[in-house]
Design a protein around this nucleic acid. Structure first.
Lengths: 194, 194
DNA sequence: CGCGGGTTTGATGATGCTCAAGCCCGGTGG
DNA sequence: CCACCGGGCTTGAGCATCATCAAACCCGCG
C-alpha cells in the first residue's frame, strides 16, 4: 500500500530506517476516489495534501467567464493539493478532481507538522520535491511568456509525459491555456504541414 | 553583514543557535555587484545561489527572436539562481543581472550540500522558501492562463510589490509577458477611462 | 546643444478567441 | 439491431487582443 511512496522517497536519495518507514505510515490516511469525484471543491479549505499511488487527478480554477484552467495534473508518484490553502487555512480557489479511479494517501495539516517533527529527514524529501515542482512550473511559465501555442504543445509532447495520452484533448488545451478549437487546429497543422 | 539573512531565517520560524549562526556564515561568500553586472550569463553553469542583502537583480531568457523574458525579480530578502542549472550542473539558459548596485551572499553547490549536513534545520528553511516561491509562481502562471494583460498588470500593482516603482517599464512588460507598447497603452487606458 | 534610452502613439497584421454548426463515435433504450 | 442521444472533436467565419514596425516625443546627461 505504501510502496509507491516509500520508493519515491528512496529515489530522492532520502534513506529512511525501517522504524521511520513504519512511523511514516501512521500519518497518512488511504483513500480511494472514483473517476469524477472531488478531493477539493472550490471554496472549501484544502484539508489534505495527497500523494497519488494510482490513477490521476487534476487541479483547476474557474474564471469569471466560466472557463476552466488546469493548474496541474498529478499521476502516480506525484503530490497534489492547493498548497496555499493547505498552509494558510484560507478557502481555496482551486478544485481537485479525479480523472481516473485513483488511490491516494492523504495527510492533514496536523499530521504534516507532526511528521516533520517525528522524521526530520522528510524536510529534505519535501524540499527536493517542491524544488522540482518549482523548476517545472517556471519552465511552463517561461513557455507561456515566450512561445506560441503550437510550440508549447510540441514541448508537452516531447516531454516524456504520458499525460497527453491519458486525458481528453480539451483538458490538454486548458492546461496549455488555449481553447480546444485552437488545439484542434494546431494538431491539424502538424499532421499536414509538417 | 549577515543580519538580513539571519532575520529572514528567523522570520520563517526556524530558530538557529548562536553556534549554528556562526557556522552558517562560513558557507557563504559576500559579493558586491554593480548595476548591469552579471551574476550568471546564458550558457554558463549556475555555480552559485545568491541571497540578496541589498539591491535588486533579475533573471531572464532570450528567445530566438531576441526578446527578453523576465523570469524573476529578486530584491532584498530574496534568493535568486537558475535552480535547474545549479542542481544538475548543466549549462543555463538564463542570465542573471544586477538592476541596482547590490550586495549578495553567494553559496556554491559544495557548500550548499555541506551546509545542509551541518545545519539540518536549513532544510526546513529552504523548504518553506521554495514552497512560497512555488505558490507565487503558480499564481503568476494561473494569471497568464486566464487573465488579460490589463488584469495581470493591475494584480501586480495591487500586490504590495515595490518592484513596479524600481524598474523601468519595459521590464515590467517583459515580466508580464507583453510588449512595452501594450503596457504603455494599458496604462493610458487606466489613467483616462479608469 | 545634441545625443540616446525609454516611453508613447499610430497603422497594420498575426495569433488565438468566440460563436455556431457539423461530424464522429460509443452508449442507451426501444 | 437500429435509432437516437450526447460528449468531444473539428471546421468555418468574424472578431478581440496583443504584436510588430515605424516614427515622434520626452528628458536627463555629456
Amino acid at each position: 500500500m505504501y510502496e509507491v511512496l516509500l520508493n519515491n522517497i528512496a529515489q530522492k536519495k532520502v534513506e529512511l530506517t525501517v522504524a521511520e518507514q513504519q512511523k511514516l505510515k501512521t500519518f497518512f490516511i488511504p483513500k480511494k476516489l472514483r473517476k469524477k469525484q472531488y478531493l477539493l471543491q472550490d471554496g472549501d479549505v484544502s484539508l489534505y495534501t495527497a500523494f497519488v499511488e494510482k490513477g490521476m487527478l487534476r487541479s483547476y480554477t474557474i474564471d469569471e467567464k466560466g472557463n476552466e484552467h488546469i493548474i496541474q495534473f498529478a499521476t502516480e508518484d506525484w503530490w497534489i493539493s492547493d498548497m496555499y490553502s493547505f498552509f494558510t487555512g484560507e478557502s481555496s480557489s482551486y478544485s481537485i478532481e479525479a480523472l481516473e479511479d485513483s488511490e491516494l494517501l492523504l495527510i492533514n495539516r496536523k499530521s504534516y507538522d507532526e511528521m516533520l517533527l517525528a522524521i526530520p529527514k522528510m524536510e529534505r524529501y519535501l524540499r527536493i520535491l517542491v524544488q522540482n515542482s518549482l523548476i517545472a512550473t517556471q519552465r511552463r511559465l517561461s513557455g507561456k511568456l515566450s512561445l506560441s501555442a503550437a510550440e508549447n504543445y510540441k514541448n508537452l509532447l516531447n516531454g516524456c509525459n504520458n499525460i497527453v495520452q491519458r486525458v481528453p484533448q480539451h483538458m490538454i488545451a486548458s492546461f496549455l491555456g488555449i481553447t480546444p478549437e485552437t488545439l484542434s487546429r494546431i494538431r491539424k497543422q502538424m499532421a499536414t504541414g509538417k
